[in-house]
Amino acid sequence: MFSMTGFGKGEYKADGIEISVEVKTVNNRYLDVAIKSPKIFNAYEEIIRSAVRERITRGHLDVFVNYIDKRERPKSLYVDAGAASGYCAAAKKLKDLFPGLADDFTLTALMRSPDVVRQEETQGADEALLNALQAALCKALDNLNAMRKKEGEKLSDDMLSRMDAVEKLVDEISARAPLVAAQYKSKLEERMKEILNGAAYDEARLLTEVAVFTDKANIDEELTRLRSHIAQFRNICREERVGRKLDFLVQEFNRECNTVCSKSNDLKVTDCGLALKNEIEKIREQVQNVE
């Protein structure tokens, strides 16, 4: 089992290339990947997304890429004519406003102005740089999954302990359920005797009323399904990517629990049903953190 939250970092340093990749994840219903990387890697974002999809199925991921390339590679200078024109116009306006000041605005000064001249590589990322990116990314994802798995084990232990509490409550309801009809029959007899003031009453009619009540209050099917869900839950927790399965199963738990509470005509069964709903809600909250 994997948690949907975690952090992983991977680095590559060799042959003048230094790349650092950081990945952090938070809960999300589907897989959503956001990439922040230098411009040189813009054309290769699908490589990053593909590597993520191989290891992760759900969650929002932020991928941060930083690099330093110390290799000797051909470079070119880009001149931003618009920025240069803006600086020249500003210099002329200042000269008109302050004619008494000496004018030392030269071509060299213009070249040193921000964004006028930028150094750019003549080509995009080469094979060595892409291999380094993939190596750093794989390390980051491996470290991320190691953290997510460790956290997932804790989530699994917590949910399984709560499932033990759920099973105990189901056992209590199962033990109590057969007594409900008998208590109803006893109360109904007392009520009829009180109303009839000791006169004889129709025993067959009484048994019919008890039978109708027993049928309406019968929760055997719901208890059987709850026990089946408990077994399924424990089996699913042994798997890895289980978030969607557990989402569905918790909904089924809630459905059966609601039916038990609606059929209940007994205070103890109702109390156990409400406690059961409380445990299921706590499990549901934890399931939201599972991939």
Score class of each variant (00 low, 15 high):
194 E>F: 13
285 E>L: 08
259 T>F: 03
121 E>T: 13
207 L>W: 09
264 S>F: 12
146 A>D: 15
74 P>Q: 13
142 D>A: 14
243 G>A: 01
99 P>Y: 05
110 L>I: 03
200 A>Q: 10
27 N>F: 10
104 D>G: 08
81 A>L: 12
88 C>W: 11
105 F>D: 03
181 A>S: 15
200 A>D: 11
57 T>Y: 02
184 Y>T: 01
156 S>H: 01
69 D>G: 05
139 K>W: 00
113 S>M: 14
269 V>R: 10
66 N>K: 09
204 A>M: 11
59 G>S: 09
67 Y>N: 05
147 M>C: 06
50 S>K: 15
80 D>A: 07
244 R>K: 15
114 P>G: 08
258 N>F: 01
34 A>Q: 10
175 A>C: 10
136 A>N: 07
193 K>F: 06
130 L>N: 06
117 V>N: 05
137 L>P: 00
211 A>C: 07
260 V>N: 07
41 F>I: 01
115 D>F: 14
213 F>C: 03
278 N>M: 02
195 I>D: 09
226 L>A: 08
165 A>C: 02
21 V>G: 02
179 L>Q: 11
272 C>V: 02
133 L>D: 01
272 C>L: 00
108 T>F: 09
184 Y>P: 02
73 R>Q: 13
29 R>P: 00
133 L>C: 10
175 A>K: 13
5 T>S: 10
211 A>I: 00
126 D>Q: 04
173 I>T: 08
246 L>E: 01
52 V>W: 12
178 P>K: 14
26 V>L: 15
56 I>Y: 08
118 R>A: 07
288 Q>M: 11
79 V>Y: 15
86 G>C: 07
256 E>Y: 12
253 F>Q: 06
165 A>R: 13
50 S>D: 10
225 R>V: 04
26 V>H: 09
64 F>E: 02
245 K>N: 09
68 I>F: 13
57 T>N: 06
207 L>Q: 05
186 S>D: 13
252 E>G: 04
99 P>S: 12
181 A>F: 01
238 R>D: 06
68 I>E: 01
181 A>N: 08
215 D>W: 00
273 G>Y: 13
287 V>D: 00
52 V>F: 09
94 L>G: 07
50 S>F: 06
220 D>K: 07
155 L>V: 00
290 V>A: 06
59 G>I: 00
19 I>Y: 00
103 D>V: 07
34 A>W: 08
189 E>M: 10
29 R>A: 06
56 I>H: 05
215 D>N: 04
95 K>Y: 08
89 A>T: 09
154 K>P: 03
87 Y>W: 15
29 R>V: 05
136 A>E: 04
75 K>A: 10
152 G>C: 02
52 V>I: 13
112 R>Q: 14
201 Y>L: 12
142 D>T: 15
15 D>Q: 14
71 R>A: 02
10 G>M: 00
258 N>G: 04
214 T>L: 02
211 A>E: 02
140 A>S: 10
56 I>N: 08
229 H>C: 08
198 G>D: 03
257 C>G: 14
238 R>Y: 08
170 V>P: 09
31 L>S: 03
153 E>N: 12
233 F>S: 07
80 D>L: 10
55 R>F: 01
89 A>Y: 12
138 C>Y: 05
283 I>D: 05
82 G>K: 15
41 F>T: 03
137 L>V: 07
289 N>G: 08
93 K>P: 02
30 Y>N: 06
52 V>L: 15
133 L>A: 05
106 T>K: 07
242 V>G: 03
8 G>E: 10
237 C>E: 02
7 F>R: 15
